[in-house]
């Protein structure tokens, strides 16, 4: 299978000269096209940092990240921005929305850059996505007028607007209740089935259980991996148990 992202001996250090700490300590990962990867690990293990490093949102101390054959550490800020805008989607734990734009404007934002002539088409696509994730009626609402779950759905719509190759999620259900969380995960599974690769950072076994592969991190290193069958909507309890056992095994 074709690899979409290759992380090659990634090192990310924080701190001052004499007191440096490697948050990522020579991590190498590969993600295939259409693959759903979950990253688990205790707090401070470097999960989010890895996600930010692979998506080009953070600079590396050492190592390389290859996205579709392009070395993200070598290209300029403009090209990197374009890759993030067109080929990647992002969903964060807190809904990262611009406060002075309403829901639909926030969703269309990345698609509208240099593309205002296609505004009607873009708006139509946004409405379609909003209906699909169940927030079709909230188009003109302020971001303060909807719930956290609804905002997270809006975030998903925004991430999907440019038909990305991969969506990165940093604890996307972390701030939601279990019902909302399940709904969101259903949407993620659906997106993945349609061929978009996913890389989610999570603490939650229920979320990880839907993935194809789970990477376990500890002290800036990938210490273990668990491969699962492609999730088809069935046997979720068994998958959760399998993940939980593995988590215990690696000490999370």
């Amino acid at each position: 299978m074709k690899k979409i992202i290759i992380g090659d001996h990634i090192v990310k250090s924080f701190g001052v000269k004499d007191d440096q700490r490697n948050v990522l300590d020579g991590v190498s990962v590969e993600i295939n096209e259409g693959e759903f990867v979950a990253i688990m690990g205790p707090s401070g293990s470097g999960k989010s940092t890895l996600m930010f490093a692979l998506s080009g949102m953070d600079s590396l101390t050492n190592g390389r990240v290859i996205f579709e054959g392009m070395d993200l550490t070598e290209i300029g800020e403009k090209e990197l921005s374009e890759i993030r805008r067109i080929k990647m989607g992002f969903i964060f734990q807190q809904p990262t929305m611009l406060k002075y734009l309403n829901i639909i404007d926030n969703i269309v934002l990345p698609s509208m850059r240099n593309n205002r002539k296609n505004a009607p088409k873009i708006a139509e696509k946004a409405r379609k996505l909003m209906r699909r994730v169940g927030i079709g009626d909230f188009e003109k609402r302020d971001i303060t007028q909807v719930s956290g779950g609804q905002l997270q759905r809006a975030g998903i719509c925004r991430a999907l607007m440019n038909n990305p190759k991969i969506i990165f999620g940093d604890e996307p259900t972390g701030a939601l209740n279990s019902k909302s969380s399940e709904d969101i995960m259903d949407i993620f599974s659906e997106i993945n089935m349609e061929g978009t690769a996913l890389m989610l950072v999570t603490h939650d076994a229920k979320v990880a259980a839907r993935s194809d592969r789970i990477m376990f991190m500890h002290d800036g290193k990938i210490v273990s991996e668990l491969k699962l069958e492609k999730f088809n909507g069935k046997d979720i309890e068994d998958r959760i148990n399998e993940v939980t056992v593995k988590m215990r095994e690696v000490g999370i």
Partner: peptide, 24 residues
């Protein structure tokens, strides 16, 4: 700080044809 703001409703990005997105 999380300011409480009233969003200028009539001025919507999806209806904007006049300005580039950044200017808007």
């Amino acid at each position: 700080s999380q300011e409480k703001k009233v969003v200028a409703k009539r001025f919507s990005l999806v209806r904007n044809r006049l300005y580039s997105t950044n200017i808007f």
